[in-house]
Design a protein around this nucleic acid. Sequence first.
DNA 1: ATAGGGTTAG
Length: 509
Amino acid sequence: MRRLDKTSLLTNYRQLCTLPAASHPATYNILSCNRKIAECVRNDQTPSAQDLFDQMPVRDVVSWNTMLSGLQKAKNPHGVNRCFSQMTRDGFRPNEYTVSIVLNAFLGTAFNVLVSQVHAVVVRLALNSSVFVGSALMKGYANAGNRVALSGVFDEISVKDVSSWNALVSSYMELGCIHEAQTVFDGMLERNVVSWTSLVNGYISNKRVNKARSVFDKMSEKNVVSWTVMISGYVRSHKFVDALDLFVLMLKSGTRPNHFTFSSVLDACAGCSSLILGQQVHSSILKFGVPEDVIMSTSLVDMYAKCGDIGAALCIFRSMPRKNLVTWNSIIGGYARHGLATRALEEFQSMTECGCRPDEVTFVNLLSACGHGGMVEKGEILFNSMKAKFGVEPKVEHYACMVDLYGRAGELEEAEKLIQGMPFQPDVVVWVALLGACGLHSSLELGELAATEIDKLGHAHPARYSTLSRIHGERGAWNSVQEFRKTMQQKGIRKQNAGSWVESPQGMR
DNA sequence: ATAGGGTTAG
C-alpha cells in the first residue's frame, strides 16, 4: 500500500483547490464554453479562443469546428491541419462544417495538395452530397488545376443551389475554361448578382476586360462587389482612366464604395500619377467614413508616393495603427523613387526594429535607392546581407539592381563581373541596366555586347536602340545613328513614354 | 455555439 506523507497530502490538497471547475465533466457546460470561443473568434482573438479550447476537459464537434474556424480566420493553415488531425485522433467524426472549414483554410496554400485526401475522408463519411462541402471541394480542385475532379464533385452534389452553380462558373474561369464557364452560366435556371459577378470576374482574370465590361453592362442589379470587380479589372489591365470613369458612374448610381473599391481606385490614381484625383479620392474616403484598413491605407501611402507627395505618404504611413510588410515596402519604395536613399535606409532600420521581416521587394527598393544615391558600398553590404542575415535569396532583379548600381557609378567591369558570376541566366532587365550604364559612360564595346544579348533574348526593347544610338552619336559615328533610327522606324519602336507628375501623361481628360 | 459562391495594396 502506498504511503502518504504530510507533504504529498498537502500537494494533493493544493491541487484540489487550484483545479478549475472545468475538471468536473459532469457539471461542465460545453455549450457556454463553445459560445465563448465563438465570441473570441468573431473578435479576431484566436489565441484566447485557443486558450479556452485547450482548457476544455470535454469537447464536442462544435468546439472543434469553432476552433478550426478561428484558425482559418487567422490564416493559419498549419494550425488547422494540426487541429484537424488531433480531432480525428481523438475519435471525433468530422461533419460538413469541419470539412468546409478545413478545405477553405487550405485553399491557396501549400496544404491544398491535401484536397484529394480530404475528399477521400468526405466520401468515407458520406458528406459528398452537401452543398457546402461540394463548393469547398470544387474550389480546392480548381486551385489544384484538376478539372476532371472538379466536375465530378459538382455532379455528386445531390441538391444543387445557386451557390454551387456559381462555384462551378468561377472554378471553370479559374482554370481558364472560359467557354465552359459561359455555357454553365447560360444553362443556369436561377442567377443572382454573384453569378453575374463571377462571370465578369472570370473574364477579367482571363484578360478579357472588354468582354467583362459588356457582361457588366448587361447586369440588371449591381452591388459594391460587382462595381469593384469591374473597376479593379480596369486597373489590372492598366486602363486607369476607364477605372476612374467607372468609379464616377458607381457614385452616381448611389452605390456606396468600400475599402476594396477605394484600394483599386487609389491604384488608378497612382497609375496616372494624378495627385489631384488622389486627393479627391482621399477626401471621399473620409467623407464616406470608411473604417481604417491596412490595405486601403497602404494604397493611400503608395498613391501619395507615386504622385510625388512623399510628405503626405509619410503622414498616412505614420498614422497607421497597423503596418505590414507591404506597407513598409510602399514607403521605402516611395523614398527610393524620390531619390531619398538615406530616408529609405532609415525606414528599413525601423522596419527591422519593429520585427517586420523584409522580403525580395524590400531589397529591390533598397538596392535601387542605393543606385540612385550612388551608395555603392552600402548597396554591396545590403546585397550580401540578404541571404546571410535575412534569409532572402537574391533573384535576377536584385542582380539587375546591382548591375545598375555599379554601372551608374562607372564601375562597368564590376557590373560585367557580376553578370558573369550570376547563378542564373541574365534577363533583359540586367542587360538593359548594363546598356544604360554604357550609355552613361560612353562604353561602346560593352554596350554592343549588351545590345546583342538583348537581341538574342528576342526583345525589341526601345532602350536597346535609343541608348546605343546615343553612344554612337557621342562617338561621332553618325552613319550608325541613322541606321539605328531607321531600324527603329522599321520595327515601329518609339521611345518609351516618360511619366511625369507635372504633365500627368495618362491623367485627367 | 460552427460552414459555402463574386472584390483590395508593395
